[in-house]
């Protein structure tokens, strides 16, 4: 059954490089899930990523298991999500405008 989920991902941050994020997104793009939104924030040691997806729980689980294999993933989990947030960039744009 199709449901909405939020995948929460903590990546190890080395010098603000994007490779860990690209690697993670490469896994997600091979999953049978529809991505609705992604939020990313970079801290000194970690990159926090929330990926809002629609899909069958088995497939979300597959994506999370694949993400968990990555050597720059410190933590991954998913929860059922009812609301998908508006994109941060859009919110900032609204504020600026």
């Amino acid at each position: 059954m199709m449901n909405s989920y939020r995948i929460n991902l903590t990546l190890l941050n080395m010098d603000g490089g994007l490779d860990p994020l690209v690697r993670a997104l490469n896994v997600v793009r091979r999953g049978k899930v529809n991505v609705k939104a992604i939020t990313v924030s970079f801290n000194r040691d970690a990159v926090n990523v929330d990926i809002y997806v629609e899909g069958v729980e088995d497939e979300v689980n597959w994506v999370c298991n694949k993400l968990n294999k990555l050597y720059d993933v410190a933590n991954v989990s998913y929860t059922a999500s009812i609301s998908i947030p508006k994109a941060q960039a859009l919110l900032m744009g609204e504020r600026n405008g």
Binding site: D15, G17, D19, V22, R23, N26, R30, L70, Y71, D72
Partner: peptide
Amino acid sequence: IIGLSIPIAKHTFMVK
């Protein structure tokens, strides 16, 4: 090559 190999390698390092 990092961008190219990310999906087909176990891991990659770009040494800066």
